[in-house]
């Protein structure tokens, strides 16, 4: 066997090992992903040992989702093997994600707090109701909105007269 042939054969077997390793890596990652999916589903079953607290369940599910997304990004999207450009594209976009969500909190997320100031009277009348312990507040707000609208109506009328 010539030296060239030997090195060629060695190269081929090296490639074979590489392929084998890659396949094994990707298979391991997908098995991990399926296990992680089951870990999210776990919160829904009776086997979940950490009580009925929804906050804990949600925290767990989001942590699992982040773990799964990281696995997909790092291995399936090859970011593990990419150069530093990856940070330029992914980090600002991730910041924007958080900022976009936080930007919605004051005017959309908080509209049912602060005396339902973001709700129109019609919406308050026909909206779903607060849980029992806060229901009194809801009715008070409807009355408040009624009074406010009645006052506004009077103002409108007086403006029309003028």
């Amino acid at each position: 066997m010539s030296e060239h042939e030997a090195s060629h054969e060695q190269g081929a077997s090296h490639e074979h090992d590489d392929v084998h390793n890659n396949y094994r890596l990707f298979l391991t990652v997908s098995v991990l992903l399926v296990i992680a999916t089951a870990a999210s589903y776990w919160t829904f079953t009776d086997l979940w040992p950490f009580g009925e607290s929804k906050e804990i369940k949600r925290l767990w599910m989001m942590a699992v989702s982040c773990f799964k997304a990281s696995l997909v990004i790092i291995f399936f999207m090859h970011l593990k093997w990419e150069a530093n450009w990856k940070w330029i594209l992914t980090v600002p976009a991730s910041f924007m994600c958080v900022l976009l969500t936080l930007a919605l909190v004051p005017d959309v997320g908080m509209r049912v707090f602060n005396g339902f100031s973001g709700y129109s009277r019609e919406r308050l009348m026909h909206s779903a109701e607060l849980p029992h312990d806060k229901a009194g507040q809801h009715h008070a707000d409807v009355k408040h909105a009624d009074a406010k609208h009645a006052k506004d109506g009077k103002d409108d009328q007086s403006q029309e007269v003028h």
Binding site: C97, T101, L104, G109, M110, V112, A128, E129, L130
Partner: peptide, 13 residues
Amino acid sequence: IGTYIVLRFGSIA
């Protein structure tokens, strides 16, 4: 997704 989160947790029910 951000809008969903905000709307969901900002809803009465």
